[in-house]
Design a binder for these strands. Structure first.
Lengths: 128, 128
DNA sequence: CAGTATCCAATATGATACTG
DNA sequence: CAGTATCATATTGGATACTG
């Protein structure tokens, strides 16, 4: 497995190349929410549990740099920005679904029904 | 996306759960080499470019802990250990192939033919 | 052969306060 | 609203030396 240089950065192999772009804790949660719709900064912040402003901003900047998402700024007061997937971003979504499905399978082997947990959560949100 | 607790560890979502087990720089290179055969510690060390002893050992311990690989020790002098995939490890290989294939596709969009690079490398190894 | 142990630098992440 | 700046901590990973 030879090294590859792209944009002056070195990658050890194709998996490394992908995981540098969509790996880590926060990239998948952002992309997952953008898969069906455009969202604002504040919507992402509200929707993604545990994410800090710092990590959300960093994640967005990296996804932009790698041309996976694009940002649209409406120069108004108060400011309004929207994030959406690029063509490359849309190419990557099926892979995230594959990773997610593998996760659901592995959880099932551990006796956990994650889809049921999501439904429970939605019910509780509505109660409040 | 609710949190999940498995073996006293918290995961934010199914993708997080998978990437904690096979993400990072070194897990995929190890699993990729074990996908077709059992290998010894020293063989993995020789085959994986750039990996340090420390990272190889750490990676192997984590993959064992997560029941993705298993270790067989032959109590001889000198020592002889073999690593191979478990059933769970074999379940995960197709996902690594998917990630890898996505990487090959993305590289192609950047004008890089990685398969050709591998062939070049093999030729050069034979020359020496 | 197959690891451990130790030291050190770089990166990741959270918390908090501040701003155009 | 959508960020930045700063401080502090934890984790990651390389280099080197040592060991049953």
């Amino acid at each position: 497995m030879p090294d590859v240089f792209i944009d002056n950065q070195r990658f050890y192999n194709p998996v490394d190349y992908v995981l540098q772009q969509i790996g880590g804790t926060w990239k998948a949660p952002v992309l997952w929410r953008l898969r069906t719709k455009t969202l604002r900064y504040s919507e992402l912040e509200k929707d993604i549990p545990h994410i800090s402003q710092k990590m959300l901003t960093k994640t967005l900047r990296e996804l932009e740099k790698d041309n996976i998402i694009e940002k649209k700024v409406y120069a108004k007061v108060p400011p309004h920005t929207e994030y959406s997937l690029t063509a490359k971003g849309k190419m990557i979504i099926p892979l995230i679904e594959s990773i997610r499905n593998t996760g659901l399978e592995l959880m099932k082997e551990e006796g956990i029904d994650y889809d049921a947990m999501i439904k429970e959560e939605k019910k509780n949100v509505l109660k409040k």
